[in-house]
Design a protein around this nucleic acid. Structure first.
Length: 213
DNA sequence: TGGATGATGGCCT
DNA sequence: GGCCATCATCCAA
C-alpha cells in the first residue's frame, strides 16, 4: 500500500526481501530500537508468508533496567537467550499472548528490543484469518496482535533473526520518529518513566491501548 | 507443588 | 477508563 522499497520489494506478489546481516544488530540497544523502525519483519510458515513494517519498538537495556526481565542479571530459562549474542529471537508468553523481541547488546549483556506494532505489508489475508477479524487497523497494532497475525510463537525462541523462518529486512526510513514512556511497566520503579518507546510519527498502526507519552 | 504475577487484548460501561 | 480471562513462568516451601 504505502511503501515501495529499495527496488527489492515492489508489491505483495513479488516479495524478495533480503535479511539484514548480524552486524546490524550489534549497535547499542537504544539505537537499534530506533533503527528497526521502518524495517520489514517477515515470517515464513507452511500456511504462507506474512510481513509488515516495524513501526513501534521498546528498548530494554539489561541488568540496570528495572523494567527488563533481565534486571539485576536475572537469569532463568526464559531470559537465557537475552545473554546470547545480538540478533537472536526472544519470545515469551504473557496473559496467553506471545511477544517477540530481538536480543541486542554484546554477549552476556542481556538487552533486547520489543517489537510492539507493525504496518501490514504482505500476507494480509492470512493475517486476517489468523486473527479472526477483517479490520486492517486492528490487525497488528499491538505486540500480542502482531505475533498472532504472523504466526510467531515460542517455536521461534532462540532462532537467528538473520534467516528464515523469521527475519528482518531493510525497509525505508520513517518520515519521523517519536519517543515516549514504555507501556505496561508501571510496577518498575524509576524505570517506568524512561522514554524508551519509539514509534513512527503519526503512523496509524501504533498501539493505542494504555497510551503514554 | 501451588500461589502470585504479568512488556495484553477484548469487552464493558 | 475499568475489569478480567487465562496460562507460562518463577520461586518459596
Amino acid at each position: 500500500m504505502k511503501k515501495i522499497l529499495n527496488g527489492e520489494l515492489t508489491n505483495e506478489s513479488s516479495l524478495k526481501a533480503v535479511p539484514l546481516t548480524i552486524d546490524f544488530f550489534k549497535q547499542p540497544t537504544l539505537d537499534l530500537a530506533k533503527s528497526l523502525l521502518g524495517c520489514l519483519l517477515v515470517k515464513e510458515t507452511d500456511e504462507g508468508v506474512t510481513s509488515g513494517f516495524i513501526i513501534e519498538t521498546e528498548a530494554y537495556t539489561g541488568p540496570e533496567d528495572q523494567a527488563a526481565h533481565s534486571y539485576n542479571n536475572r537469569r532463568t530459562a526464559r531470559t537465557e537467550i537475552m545473554f546470547a549474542e545480538p540478533g537472536h529471537i526472544y519470545t515469551y508468553v504473557m496473559h496467553t499472548h506471545c511477544l517477540v523481541n530481538i536480543v541486542s547488546g554484546p554477549k552476556d549483556k542481556p538487552e533486547a528490543v520489543l517489537i510492539r506494532a507493525i504496518e501490514p505489508f504482505s500476507g494480509i489475508e492470512l493475517m486476517k484469518k489468523r486473527r479472526g477479524i477483517t479490520d486492517l487497523k486492528n490487525l497488528t497494532n499491538g505486540p500480542g496482535k502482531l505475533t498472532k497475525a504472523m504466526g510467531i510463537s515460542m517455536a521461534d525462541y532462540g532462532r537467528s533473526v538473520c534467516e528464515p523462518p523469521l527475519y528482518i529486512c531493510t525497509g525505508i526510513q520513517p518520515a519521523g520518529i517519536s519517543q515516549g514512556k514504555r507501556i505496561g511497566i508501571d510496577n518498575s520503579g524509576e524505570a517506568r518513566d524512561y522514554p524508551w518507546r519509539f514509534w513512527e510519527t503519526d503512523n496509524p498502526f501504533v498501539s493505542r491501548h494504555r497510551k503514554r507519552i
